[in-house]
Amino acid sequence: MSRPFATLLGFGAVLLWALLALFTAATGDVPPLQLLAMCFAIGGISGLLAGLPRRGWRAWAQPWPAWALGVGGLFGYHLLYVLALRNAEPVEAGLIAYLWPLLIVLMASGRALKAHHLAGALMGLAGAALIVTGGVGIEIAAEDVAGYAFAGAAALVWSSYSVLSRRFATVPTDAVTGFCLVTALLSGLAHLALETTAMPGGTEWLAILGLGLGPVGLAFFLWDIGVKHGDLPVLGAASYAAPLLSTLVLIAAGQAEPGWPVALACLLITGGAVLAAKDMLRGRRR
């Protein structure tokens, strides 16, 4: 598989993540950890069924470091993100958590970090900040320090998972099915310990099914291909498109209003992604 094609598949995950806000809003009052357990179970079962013709379950026979990275990345990031939102204002926590694309660019490039990689990622971060904050200032409250720490840890976990996956490039993507199922189990246990179970209604079940099949299902399989075989700095910078596309989806659905922050964020994120992908667009390899 060529690097540009793998990068394109990885960006497919970003496109699916753009549906997270719309679908999540439609799940009503289902607690976040319960929602994660249900969605990862749907994603894992879907992956298992899709892999049956080629006996995809055989890919689960991996050494423990591969399982630790896969489950630690999926479950660790989402648990930390939920804890961040529980202990800090969502806007500030979300912005800190969205440092992960920048961290991917920095960690993946290493000594080969180029000015246009960093500039593209910073432009994307600025665009994401406009989307998350709506173009208004944010306030850092001392009582929210724990939440900020959880958000920062979430960003570090997801960026580390994405970059370290490169070292397990020989692990088939079918193994992600097992990671999703274990993550569903751990999320369910965390839900029972921290939350009160809520029974979804008809429309809410449809939203949960959509999440499990797409943003919390197929997206992680596509991301696995992208981070293992694609251009990581480009993927990192391009990932800032997720909050922008998510906002555009909400606007199209009539659940958000357009404004100058969205327009400027569009320019910053698109320009940053193109700048970071300059080498790939010219057909060069790192």
Rank of each mutant, 00 (worst) to 15 (best):
R3Q: 14
R3D: 03
L16F: 08
W17K: 07
T27N: 04
G28F: 11
M38F: 09
F40Y: 15
I45E: 02
S46A: 15
G47V: 00
L48F: 14
L48C: 07
L48T: 12
L48N: 03
A50Q: 08
G51N: 08
G56M: 00
G56I: 01
R58V: 11
A59H: 03
A61P: 06
Q62N: 05
Q62I: 08
P63A: 11
G70A: 09
G73E: 01
F75P: 00
G76F: 04
G76R: 06
Y81R: 02
L83C: 03
A84E: 02
R86E: 15
N87T: 10
V91G: 00
G94E: 01
L95H: 03
A97Q: 08
A97H: 10
P101L: 09
L102N: 03
V105G: 04
M107S: 13
S109L: 11
R111T: 12
A112Y: 07
L113Q: 09
L113E: 08
L113S: 05
H116T: 11
H116L: 09
G120C: 08
G120M: 03
A121S: 09
M123G: 12
L125N: 02
A126N: 06
I138C: 09
V145C: 05
A146I: 13
Y148R: 00
A153P: 01
L156K: 06
V157Y: 01
S159L: 04
V163T: 02
R167K: 14
A169M: 08
T170I: 10
T170E: 15
D174K: 00
G178N: 00
L181W: 10
T183L: 07
A184M: 01
S187C: 13
S187H: 00
G188I: 10
A193T: 13
T196F: 05
A198F: 12
P200G: 11
T203W: 15
E204N: 13
L206F: 13
A207N: 09
G210M: 10
G212F: 05
F220L: 11
L222D: 00
W223Q: 10
I225D: 02
G226I: 06
G230N: 07
L232N: 09
A241R: 02
L248Y: 10
I251V: 14
A252K: 11
A253D: 14
A253T: 11
A253G: 10
Q255K: 14
Q255E: 15
L264K: 04
I269N: 02
A273S: 15
A273K: 02
V274F: 14
L275R: 08
K278I: 12
D279L: 09
G283S: 12
R284N: 11
